[in-house]
């Protein structure tokens, strides 16, 4: 299977080269074109990419006047979305919750294996982090990871096996525990075991968990992406929740990529790449910040510093990278299953 895909890459490389030549020769004749782009994304980015899709045509027409562009987004669980692209959804662009889901597409020959190095910041235009959402006034005084496993504290977090977003929650806890004095894989596993003993409900998705915490009043603390927490605390109930940013947490990097095989087929290579570049542009970065995703551009970071509290973060690479983590923790019989085994 490896051999077939590598041969496919060679073939694909030739195709890309050929397509680039044709595109290059076509540029001089600059004719107006009709583009339809599909961005297959994950759940909490619905509003973000709604705004991006509305703003992108203006960005593109600066260099390509007269083109007509329709960008649509599709949203769902990150893993399910990756599966749909794998099974043939005509995505030009994927913007998913974790690099592992795009790695799977690369393993199946849909895009180059080195996709994550093609754009700055590990192909991540916006980052986020994992924070705690607590009831107003923080009645259980939760400030850091050890507080989550105190007696009488109930924690709401989705099942990391069914929710890509929740894998970040889990790995934030894992990484924190590893970094404690005397921390080891054993001590980190013990911490996670204790943590999940405090989780009364394992929702299958991040929005489900937010619902359980916000609407049903379940639990004392919700482990959540910062953008979801800010959305819940600012827009759903400003007087109901507080956000606690733990002193040490994970840097969540939801990456983006073009689906090489599909954009060659659709003839949308240039515009799909431009769409991703737009995400890194000052305008794209501001739209991201508006939806509570942390910008990577230093200028926009400075502009929006008041929205995002400072914290120390570690990234997934420092924990061993997605492929290794996925296998060790979230595969059948992995560490997460062991936590629940009798």
């Amino acid at each position: 299977m490896k051999n077939v895909s590598s041969r496919r890459y060679v073939l694909k490389g030739t195709l890309v080269l050929g397509a680039a030549l044709i595109a290059g020769s076509g540029l001089s004749s600059a004719r107006a074109a009709d583009y339809r782009l599909l961005n297959v994304s994950y759940d909490p980015t619905r509003e973000l990419y709604g705004d991006i899709n509305r703003a992108f045509p203006a960005f593109w027409s600066k260099t390509h006047a007269g083109d007509s562009i329709v960008v649509t987004s599709s949203h769902g669980g990150s893993g399910a979305q990756a599966r749909s692209v794998l099974e043939g959804a005509p995505a030009d662009i994927v913007t998913l919750g974790l690099a592992y889901d795009i790695d799977i597409l690369a393993q199946n020959g849909l895009l180059a294996a080195n996709w994550q190095t093609r754009l700055p910041h590990n192909s991540t235009p916006y980052t986020s982090t994992i924070v705690f959402l607590v009831r107003k006034g923080n009645p259980k005084s939760i400030h850091d990871w050890p507080d989550l496993i105190r007696d009488g504290v109930q924690v709401v977090t989705p099942n990391p096996k069914t929710s890509g977003g929740a894998r970040w929650n889990y790995l934030a806890a894992w990484g924190w525990a590893l970094r404690q004095p005397g921390g080891s894989e054993q001590s980190a596993t013990a911490y996670l075991k204790a943590l999940f003993a405090h989780v009364p409900v394992l929702d299958t998705g991040a929005r489900g968990a937010t619902n359980s915490f916000v609407q049903r009043g379940l639990g004392d603390v919700l482990i959540a992406w910062e953008d979801e927490a800010l959305l819940a605390s600012r827009d759903l109930g400003p007087d109901k929740f507080d956000i606690v940013v733990p002193p040490l947490t994970i840097l969540a990097e939801p990456p983006v990529a073009t689906v090489d095989r599909n954009i060659q087929e659709h003839g949308t290579e240039a515009i799909s790449r431009a769409y991703l570049e737009f995400l890194f542009s000052p305008e794209g970065q501001r739209i991201g910040a508006k939806h509570y995703f942390r910008p990577v551009d230093p200028t926009i970071q400075a502009e929006t510093a008041s929205v995002f509290p400072k914290t120390t973060t570690f990234d997934v690479a420092s924990l061993g990278g997605w492929t290794r983590l996925q296998k060790a923790h979230f595969s059948d019989g992995g560490i997460f299953d062991q936590i629940y085994s009798h």
Partner: peptide, 8 residues
């Protein structure tokens, strides 16, 4: 669903 999520 979990197995599918593992691409298994």
């Amino acid at each position: 669903v979990m197995r599918l999520q593992e691409f298994n």
